[in-house]
């Protein structure tokens, strides 16, 4: 059961450095920012465990989250309508405002 639904506003955690140090698939530039769930992609093995070769890594819900470019980059040089969409695992997300 996924924690968030399409259209929910979510906030990306801003944990750095990660503990323990590993390979993460959440880019720096969205950490600490809020966006909107665009779709639920399904469940996939947690890459932070797969990075250590754990084939039986627990499965996690993966979302696509849409961010306003103007929110991510100070002085963004483009249209206010421009967006970026990226995939983020559930454990990196909180409800917006938290």
């Amino acid at each position: 059961m996924s924690r968030f639904a399409v259209g929910d506003r979510v906030r990306v955690h801003d944990l750095w450095p990660p503990t323990p140090p590993t390979h993460v698939r959440t880019p720096h530039y969205v950490r600490g920012h809020e966006g909107v769930v665009e779709r639920i992609c399904g469940t996939f093995g947690n890459p932070e465990e797969l990075a250590f070769g754990r084939r039986d890594a627990p499965r996690e819900t993966l979302y696509r989250v849409r961010f306003r470019q103007a929110d991510l980059w100070p002085g963004y040089d483009g249209s206010a309508a421009d967006h970026i969409e990226i995939e983020i695992y559930e454990f990196w997300l909180s409800p917006a405002g938290q």
Binding site: R25, C41, L62, G78, S79, A81, H83, E87, I88
Partner: peptide, 26 residues
């Protein structure tokens, strides 16, 4: 938009540019 311009692609100001960062499994 600057990168697209380097590829010779000019997108009108009133048309949204939507970037997709392929960060995980899709």
């Amino acid at each position: 938009r600057a990168v697209l311009r380097e590829f010779g692609t000019e997108i009108a100001d009133d048309r949204e540019v939507r970037v997709h960062d392929s960060t995980a499994d899709m």
